[in-house]
């Protein structure tokens, strides 16, 4: 835990940078959609579980289980892998049905770099946008300039450099990528361990070393320096990609995650409601093995996990993102 609360990053309010490309999405009023309220919502989600849901019924199960938000999408990552083809933003109708069904925040995914999908999701009023490697990228060089939106964005990362590049583009929340749709937590652990160990390294660096390291990991210097000062990412950092059991979720919390995304793990396993609730309790009490034992008991079959390799169906989603 850092010694002080992260402060609002300089030059990153909604009006800080206005590009012609998507100026149509610029904030109308200076006090709306500031970086403070964007990153602040992520702070409100901490210690919670964000669950992938494909319809209003699943969203209600998630809400009753204690999810702090839901991710509305047409196909969960495991099905994206199975079906192949191009995975895109979900139909706004389905997202709106979920928004009407629950009172917790509703997130939805856009393809990497797809500015217009993001404008559409902002127009229908989703609470958070995930610019996600789980969908097929729309731009193989650029991510969305997220400062131009009032709605906040979460983005995936595999390491500190990628996290800070996304924050520099305006992401108000980060999640480590893991490997979505596998039910295999190994990559989520790898990415979280990587980010945490890089933060530990930079926290003892001099400015000279930080300048050099910023170049090496292709991160903006001012964000790297802020990370070193805070001894954590300047925004909230959740874990994602392969969490299937309460124990997986608690593991990610013990490794320093602020909260957990669970994608395919709940609705691909048995006993959805019970498993969802168990994961919520595991995150809230991640340091209490007795509670973890109790909530892990008698949940039925977890989703069938797959071994992660370059030639698995759907490939390595985590490699998407630049």
């Amino acid at each position: 835990m850092s010694a002080e609360n992260p402060t609002i990053l300089p030059g990153s309010d909604a009006n800080g940078s206005i590009s012609r490309v998507n100026g149509g999405a610029k904030a109308e009023s200076s006090n709306l959609g500031t970086f403070g309220v964007k990153s602040g919502l992520a702070q409100m989600l901490k210690g919670g579980v964000i669950m992938d849901v494909v319809n209003a019924e699943q969203a209600r199960i998630a809400e009753e289980a204690g999810a702090c938000a839901v991710m509305a999408l047409e196909r969960i990552p495991a099905d994206v892998r199975r079906d192949g083809g191009v995975a895109r933003m979900s139909d706004p109708k389905m997202i709106q049905e979920i928004m009407e069904a629950v009172t917790i925040p509703v997130m939805a995914k856009v393809r990497i770099g797809h500015i217009v999908e993001a404008q559409i999701l902002q127009a229908i009023g989703v609470d958070y946008i995930d610019e996600s490697e789980v969908l097929t990228p729309a731009d193989n060089a650029h991510h969305i300039n997220k400062h131009n939106f009032k709605v906040p964005f979460v983005c995936g990362c595999k390491n500190l450099g990628e996290a800070l590049r996304r924050i520099s583009e305006g992401a108000a929340m980060i999640r480590t990528k893991g490997e979505a749709g596998t039910g295999n937590v190994v990559e989520a652990v790898h990415h979280q361990r990587t980010v945490q160990s890089e933060i530990k390294r930079v926290s003892t660096m001099s400015d000279e070393e930080l300048y050099a390291y910023a170049k090496e990991i292709q991160a903006p210097f001012h964000l790297l320096k802020e990370t070193a000062r805070l001894k954590r990412l300047p925004v909230v950092n959740f874990a994602a990609g392969g969490v299937a059991t309460p124990a997986d979720a608690a593991l990610m919390m013990q490794l320093g995650s602020d909260g957990v995304f669970v994608g395919s793990g709940i609705f691909k396993g048995e006993n959805h409601a019970k498993r969802a609730r168990a994961i919520v309790e595991a995150v809230a009490h991640f340091n209490d093995p007795k509670t973890l034992a109790a909530v892990s008991t008698d949940l039925g079959e977890a989703m069938v996990g797959i071994t992660i390799s370059d030639n698995m169906k759907g490939g390595r989603m985590a490699d998407k993102g630049w």
């Binding site: 925040p105 609470d127 709605v151």
Partner: peptide, 14 residues
């Protein structure tokens, strides 16, 4: 009224 100002895009600072 829980969440009475509306969705996140109506969150603000003043």
């Amino acid at each position: 009224n829980r969440n009475g100002y509306g969705a996140q895009i109506f969150s603000f600072e003043t």
